[in-house]
Design a binder for these strands. Structure first.
Length: 164
DNA sequence: GCCAACGTTGGC
DNA sequence: GCCAACGTTGGC
């Protein structure tokens, strides 16, 4: 088994917040509805069970990293693509070769200190973080081990850092 | 296969 | 609410 990798997942908290995940059954949800091919490729091919996730709130106030989660099920066909009532329904996706994928994520814990985007921008060691690059709209992003440690530290995560 | 038009994302 | 950046669509 390879060591866990690190990712950042964006969510608009008005639609689904870290608190929503924390309150969900088994603190787990299906992370689907992603309709971008680059993000799809990551969900399908790269995210593995045991990988660690920064849960990021976007298009809201405040913007920033709210909590930590873990991938508990690797990529599988996203059921919402076949659901005509779902906003992310894709009538053109063939059942035999589904176009879109989801993973399951489980909340590990809220960061003791919410880490605002503006604070991330002020940290020089995070200068290359995908989230902070111009026009980085990808909703599933890779995070390096050192970025992971820095963000958790900024979030006041106590004790042993997951993934370090 | 090019690329203009269009739609969406998402920070500010 | 604005608008830059980006992805997708569709005419040719």
């Amino acid at each position: 088994m390879r060591p866990p990798r690190h990712w950042l997942l964006k969510s608009e908290p008005e639609a689904f917040s870290f608190e929503d995940l924390w309150r969900a059954a088994k603190r787990t949800t299906s992370w689907g509805g992603v309709r971008n091919y680059q993000a799809r490729n990551l969900l399908r091919d790269e995210l593995a069970r045991g990988d660690l996730v920064l849960f990021h709130h976007s298009s809201t106030e405040p913007i920033g990293v709210a909590g930590v989660a873990r991938v508990v099920r690797a990529g599988y066909p996203d059921p919402t693509q076949f659901d005509a009532r779902d906003a992310a329904h894709d009538p053109d996706s063939p059942h035999a070769a589904p176009r879109w994928f989801a993973v399951d994520v489980q909340a590990l814990g809220r960061l003791p200190r919410f880490v605002p985007l503006a604070e991330l921008r002020q940290e020089p060691r995070l200068g290359r973080m995908v989230l902070l690059r111009r026009g980085a709209r990808l909703s599933v992003q890779p995070v390096t081990p050192s970025e992971w440690r820095i963000v958790l530290s900024m979030g006041g995560w106590r004790g042993r850092l997951p993934g370090s």
